[in-house]
Structure formats: C-alpha cells, structure tokens
Amino acid sequence: MNSSQIPHFDYIFTGTGLASLMTVYKMIVSGKFSDKSILLLDQDSKKANDRTWCFWEKGDSIWNPIISKKWDSALFANTNFNRHLELKPYQYSKIIGLDFYNFVFEEISKHSNITFLNEKVTDINELETHVFVGTDENRYTCNYLFNSIYTRAFAERQNKYPVLQQHFVGWFVKTKEEVFNAEEVTFMDFSVEQKGNTRFMYVLPTSKNEALVEYTLFSEKLLPKEEYEKEIEIYLKKLGSEQYEILEKEEGSIPMTCYPFWEKNTKRVLNIGTAGGWTKASTGYTFKNSDKKTSELVEFLQNENFQLKSFNKKSKFWFYDLLLLDILYRHNELGSSIFSSLFERGNPALIFKFLDEETNLIEDLKVILKCPKMPFLKALFRVFL
C-alpha cells in the first residue's frame, strides 16, 4: 500500500475510553464537526461492563439519561465518628460503564463521518504535515490525533513527582438481610484497619439489600486480590450480612500523580484522559474532570489555527494536589486523619466545589485550613526546595 492509498482522517482517537468517547459525543452534539472525518481505534470492543463511574453535580447534565442512581446524602466515617453529609445543592450520581458505552456508540452509529474500528494501535508517528498511525491490521493518517492510551512508564520511571494508585476491588452483592441505606452512599469509611496505608470502604447502595461494596486504597503498591476480598467479607459481616450473593465483580487501579503528561503534547498530538493527566490527582476521580476537559477541548477545536500544545494549563489546584500526594507518598498512614479532619467539620458543598476546582482563594483556605497543618507545611517546604 503506497501513501496515497492509506486512509486519511481529519481526527483519529487512539483508545476509546471515557475521554475519547466524551469528546466525540460532544463533537456530535455541537453540530460543528459534521464535515470532519473521525476514526476511533481500540482493541477493546466496549461491549463489557468493566467499570462504574460516580460524580457529584448540581442539577441535570447531558448524561442524565444514563444515570442509574442518585443520592442526596453521603456517609463519612472512621473509628471515632460517623457524619451524615447533606450534599445539597449537589447530588452524587452513578453511571454504569456499559450504559455509557452503549449510549455513546448508539449516537456514533447515526453519523457516517465517524468510524470505529476494533484494532490494536501499535505505532504513532508524527510528521510535519500529518500523523501516521499503525495498527496490528492497517495503517492510517490524520491531521490531528487524540491519544488516550496510558503509558505507565512515563510517570513511574521518574522521581520528581510522586505516583500513587487508587486501587480497589468491588463486589456487587445481594444480601439476605436488609443492611444498606439505599438513600445514602458511603463516601469513605475509614473504620477498616489501616495497616500503615490509606484504606477505606466505599458503598453504592441501590436497595436495602443490594450494593456495590469496594475496598479501596490510596497507596503505592497493589495488594494480592484475596486481601481486598477478605476485607469486603469482614465489612459485610460487620454490617450484619452473613449470607449474600456476589452478582458481579470489578477491580481497577487508577494512577494518582501530578506528573505533567501534557508536556508530551505536540503540534498534532494531544494526550487526553488519564494519558493526558486529566484524572484528579488527589482523589483518582475521573468522570467529572473528563466532562469538563472534553467540553473545553470541543470548544478549543472550533478556534481557527488552534495549537494542541497550548491546550493544557497548570492551575493552583495542581499545586494543592501535589502537596497532598507528597504527604501520602511519604506518610501513607496519614490519609485517614487528613480526610477525616476535612469531612468532620467541613461544609460538604464547599468541599465538593473545591474538589471540582471551582473555588476562589478564600474558599480554598476555608477547606485547606481544616486539614492538619504540620504535614502540609512540611510538604510545602519540600516542594519549594
């Protein structure tokens, strides 16, 4: 095949995770890209339910048709206290991964200018006038490429920025006993044994006897799978459930780092999603950040003479996240006390606004000053040195 026979597209998306599918969906909704040819490439056909996304929001969003559950209340707990958080004006929302994939691909199927191919990307090569993409089956070129294939080595083979993982195993369970409060999500329950780490339970109940129960850590090293599952068993027993059925399982590991992935963006290649540093570094939350970033990106692409390299900008929140990660990397056992001090006395709506990176400096201080001061002062000293 000579170069003139290689299929050419205006945009290619390598990897069809959350960020890519959100971007393409919003390109469709905008009505501004119907004259652009778009190719999505992924070795995964996106026909399996591989994850659950949660986020807080005010009012409805474009994702409302696929939100399977909303909660107005959340529980935060540790060994010393329980606090029931009224989330208003926010609601905590859940989207099942397969519902999201089906929703977006159904819309994509209506547009002849968008193609999805189930192929594994093997090579990306940027040239002066275009980008070359090789797969295990074919070759393509495009004007601009959006890459969401995460390369672990970029973050993990450097020492300047700490790298933790938000790692978890979750069981969708149906219990014989009614042990869950269907109207309240358990946001973080630090009453589980910490074992020198930041460890908590996360519970998304859909009825009094059905819930997703996840054992989650913010730490550097993953555990043997049986350790996560043993802790879920212990927790269910503590809730009062002796008999239950495991309907489904999920597991994951999300990088938590302030490593500047965006520095690898170029004239024609933009890294997006986790590969672009879009995951909220201090929490591992992905959905809300990606929702914001993809809206910004779709607007950005409508500007004449846009430069992909200039899309990402570092903010004060990147610096706040860096301080927290520095603390948790050096003293992982402090996670429970830091988050507990924040939620024991803090205003839940203000905390969520802060985590959404929408607060002003005075509001930032109201949140930050709730945290233990000495660890952050030490981290501040280390980061500036």
Rank of each mutant, 00 (worst) to 15 (best):
F132T: 11
S290N: 14
F343K: 01
G17Q: 05
F116A: 08
K69F: 03
H84G: 02
K110H: 12
L350V: 01
F33P: 02
F168D: 00
I234H: 12
S34Y: 10
S253W: 04
G59P: 07
S315T: 15
A19T: 06
E210T: 14
S337P: 02
S219Y: 09
F339A: 04
I327Y: 05
L270A: 09
S73W: 12
S295T: 15
F76M: 06
I96V: 13
M201S: 03
A281T: 01
K293I: 08
F187W: 01
N143K: 12
Y259P: 07
Y140N: 05
V185S: 07
F317V: 02
S45P: 11
F287R: 07
N305R: 05
E106V: 10
D10P: 00
M1E: 11
Y90D: 04
N289R: 11
L222G: 05
Q302V: 06
F55G: 12
E128R: 11
D356K: 07
K47Q: 12
I338H: 09
F33K: 02
K230Y: 09
N197C: 03
G15I: 05
D136E: 14
R382L: 01
Q158N: 03
K292L: 10
L380G: 09
I232A: 08
A155S: 15
E299N: 15
W318D: 15
K221C: 06
A281P: 13
N159R: 00
F9V: 00
I114R: 06
M201E: 06
K47P: 03
L342K: 02
T216I: 05
N312G: 00
S109R: 11
E193V: 14
E57T: 03
A153T: 09
L127K: 13
K353W: 01
E126H: 13
N312D: 13
K264R: 15
S148D: 10
T198V: 04
W318H: 12
K309A: 13
E231F: 07
K366L: 12
E126T: 10
I67V: 15
L217P: 01
N303Y: 00
G15V: 04
G59H: 07
F154K: 08
L322V: 00
E233M: 09
F172Q: 13
F55E: 12
K366G: 07
G346R: 09
H167I: 00
N2L: 05
K378V: 14
A19K: 04
Y202S: 08
V383T: 11
E248G: 01
N125Q: 14
S295N: 13
E156Q: 14
F311I: 08
N303Q: 14
S109I: 03
E263D: 14
K88E: 10
Y144M: 06
